[in-house]
């Protein structure tokens, strides 16, 4: 009952009129719900060309380039993802499909063109690295709101964000996993921009309470009215490894058909959608 109420509240907050943002004071769960809505759910659907640079401590770089399609369920928090790999060569032509559910494990399928094989993949752990980067699956597609306790520690201006000509007025949101085993971090601090509700910076603290991972948004753009982090960086301060991500050719609300996310197109992705 409580869960249902929470979900309804979450949806209400996400889709509530935006006129009053500046004046309103939000509770921590409300900020968290808005953050989730604006960061992981904007638009009905979304297409982007993602370039990732995976940089080792010694400077060696690896490249990942992929097209990502996302479609939100018209009803709840379910989402479907379609990912097509352009680079590097050993994964070129592979496609990856995820059905994401808020209350249970994702369904994931991988298509390997060399064998013409669709393989269902066990996906218990959302903390696995996404394509070998410093981002986990959870960092890419979000985490259930119900898994964390939220509190607002303070409100703060991010000073080094001024270069983008924005104020960078933020809520500092602390998220603590209810089940410590459900996450790699013992808690996470997120600097959430009061205007866009996007995270400008996040710090992940490990089980010893030491900082180990830092997310930073390095470029924000408003595209078709949706604020979007177009450049981001995830840095592992313990290993020195980091990942730089840039979004190109961003389009929202393309009217993606439901059947795009089926075996037919997993095996034979239409170039209209992947180029």
């Amino acid at each position: 009952m409580l869960k249902k109420y929470f979900l309804t509240l979450g949806l209400f907050v996400i889709f509530s009129p935006s006129v009053l943002w500046g004046q309103e004071k939000f509770t921590a769960p409300e900020v968290a719900a808005k953050y989730q809505g604006y960061f992981f759910y904007p638009g009905k659907d979304f297409k982007v060309l993602v370039s990732m640079q995976l940089i080792e401590k010694g400077g060696q770089e690896r490249i990942r380039e992929l097209t990502m399609l996302r479609k939100n369920s018209p009803k709840g928090l379910e989402q479907k993802y379609f990912i097509y790999f352009h680079q590097p060569a050993d994964v070129r032509g592979m496609s990856f499909m995820v059905y994401k559910y808020p209350k249970k494990d994702d369904d994931r399928w991988l298509f390997m063109p060399a064998l013409n094989l669709v393989k269902r993949i066990a996906a218990k752990d959302k903390r696995s690295s996404f394509v070998g980067s410093d981002f986990t699956y959870e960092d890419v597609s979000g985490r259930d709101l119900e898994e964390d306790d939220f509190s607002i520690l303070r409100e703060e201006k991010i000073s080094d964000f001024g270069s983008m000509g924005q104020a960078g007025d933020c809520y500092v949101l602390k998220s603590v996993p209810k089940d410590p085993k459900s996450a790699d971090y013992s808690y996470r601090l997120s600097w959430i921009d009061k205007e866009s509700f996007l995270p400008l910076k996040e710090e992940y603290y490990d089980l010893k309470g030491e900082l180990y991972k830092i997310f930073s948004a390095e470029e924000l753009k408003q595209i078709q009215g949706f604020w979007t982090v177009t450049k981001r960086r995830m840095q592992n301060v313990k290993t020195g490894h980091q990942t730089l991500v840039s979004f190109k050719d961003i389009q929202y609300n393309l009217g993606m058909e439901e059947n795009l996310f089926t075996e037919r197109y997993l095996k034979n992705p239409p170039s209209k959608w992947i180029k």
Partner: peptide, 12 residues
């Protein structure tokens, strides 16, 4: 039966 044991480890 296929399952993920821990991060980046799968067994079947």
């Amino acid at each position: 039966y296929q399952r993920q044991g821990w991060t980046d480890f799968t067994y079947s």
